[in-house]
Design a binder for these strands. Structure first.
Lengths: 137, 137
DNA sequence: GTAATTCCTATTAAATCGATAGGATTAATG
DNA sequence: CATTAATCCTATCGATTTAATAGGAATTAC
């Protein structure tokens, strides 16, 4: 299941993309418009800024803005930052690989093979979709 | 992330599929061979039996056996029983649909559209793969 | 200098997950 | 019939994760 964090983050990015060209977008505005708890959203925006998707301006009339073009922001990258690994098991993760405790040899593991297929198909979608697609520009 | 429950369940089914034709397969045997905590596996096997994938025989020389041909057991169905919804958000789930709290209209939701694509591609894989594929028969 | 905003760290409450406990029931075997 | 070996069943526990909140520090516009 997608965490609320990720869902809220994607909605917030979409909201900002749609408001682009104007002044920075404020958390309070996104929070109200998208029904996201404000304090929770605050921490998510922080994460998105620290990972290079958003810039911010502090103080009055401050807020957040996109650093890259929406068409350059791949969903796969956003998901990795907010949700973590895209793969369903660590042993098939490209960016968060980990060996499984229970598998002496992962190439013998039936689950491994299946999850590689799932990963590849999920990745295809998430690499193919950018923020531009989500915001319907 | 795939839960251990699901992973163990899939491995156990694969193990039984490979041992097919002989006597019922015992939990203790699967547990040792696949490095799965026995008591935990016990509860998983119970779930798989109650949901119609496995039959069981009690008492001495008892154990579990497949009820259907491996080629007739779709991964999508096993996953739904062990893991729950395949979709990443309830609002795009075919079998576990639920409305999202934060979305007044889900057809307007950017995340919704993306997650339908992810779901469809995941389903394609999970419907296409059967226990026969996993057990490499 | 005041108001409005982001920034930062810590904390909490609830849910979920992985695993274990302890026995009840059933069946094979001698 | 007694023993052994297996599944069946319910409950519980501890650790982790998740969603959210708290409380103030720092910064900026005006």
């Amino acid at each position: 299941m997608l965490s609320k964090k990720t869902k809220y983050g994607l909605k917030a990015l979409t909201f900002i993309a749609k408001s682009e060209g104007e002044a920075p977008v404020q958390i309070s505005e996104i929070s109200k418009s998208e029904n996201i708890p404000q304090k929770f959203l605050e921490s998510i925006m922080l994460t998105l800024r620290k990972s290079g998707f958003l810039g911010s301006k502090k103080g009055k009339h401050g807020g957040y803005y996109l650093i890259k073009e929406p068409s350059q922001i791949k969903m796969a990258d956003v998901m990795r930052v907010l949700e973590g690994p895209i793969a369903m098991v660590p042993c098939v993760s490209l960016n968060f690989y980990e060996k499984c405790d229970d598998c002496p040899d992962e190439h013998e593991c039936s689950v491994h093979k299946l999850m590689i297929q799932v990963r590849d198909n999920t990745l295809k979608v998430l690499r193919n979709n950018t923020l531009e697609d989500l915001s319907g520009i």
